[in-house]
Simulated scan of single mutants.
Amino acid sequence: MTTKGSKYRARTESGDPDPIDVHVGGRLRLRRTLMGLSQTDLARSVGLTFQQVQKYESGANRVSASRLFHIAESLDVPVSFFFDDMPREGGLEEQPKVAFEPDRELLELTRNYRSIADAEVRRGIYELVKRLANKDGATE
């Protein structure tokens, strides 16, 4: 949406990438990292170079709709995932921040959890972690 007399630009007045492109790139990086994929792994799965993935993740290059669709398929998320947590009113006036930066321990835990083939065992671990995280020590 543009206002009278203004022109939509892919970059801000200062030459920085559009904050929406930065947000989408941050969400792409978050999902790729949580899945334990390298930039090269993702690039191969959608027919890109890892440098293109780097530029998408930084917001330096804009991701086309068709490319975003294929990336979403490869990362097993809906396209809307890339726009989650983005302010809707008034646009983005400052650089959006990724909800959290996963640390190495969380990434390893997530990868290992996802590799458990037995759904019953996975559910048991999930319930155990929920109980351990309960601060008052009460069980549900």
Rank of each mutant, 00 (worst) to 15 (best):
L106D: 01
S58D: 10
V77F: 02
D41K: 04
L132M: 13
A72V: 00
P102G: 00
G15W: 15
E94H: 10
R11M: 07
A99Y: 05
R29C: 07
E120I: 01
L92T: 05
N61Q: 09
F83T: 04
Q52N: 09
N112L: 06
G15Y: 15
R131H: 03
A60M: 13
V63T: 14
Y8P: 04
R9A: 10
L37Q: 14
E89G: 00
T2H: 07
V53H: 07
H23N: 08
L30C: 09
S80Y: 02
I125T: 05
E120R: 12
P102R: 00
E120C: 08
P102I: 02
L107D: 07
E94I: 11
L30W: 11
M1N: 04
V24Y: 03
V24W: 01
I116F: 03
T3G: 10
I71E: 04
Y8K: 13
Q54L: 08
E73K: 12
P19S: 15
D84M: 13
G90Y: 13
E120Q: 13
Q52I: 11
I71Q: 06
G25Y: 05
E108T: 07
L42G: 00
R62E: 14
E101Q: 10
V46M: 03
G90P: 08
K4M: 03
R11E: 14
R131T: 01
K130T: 05
G90M: 10
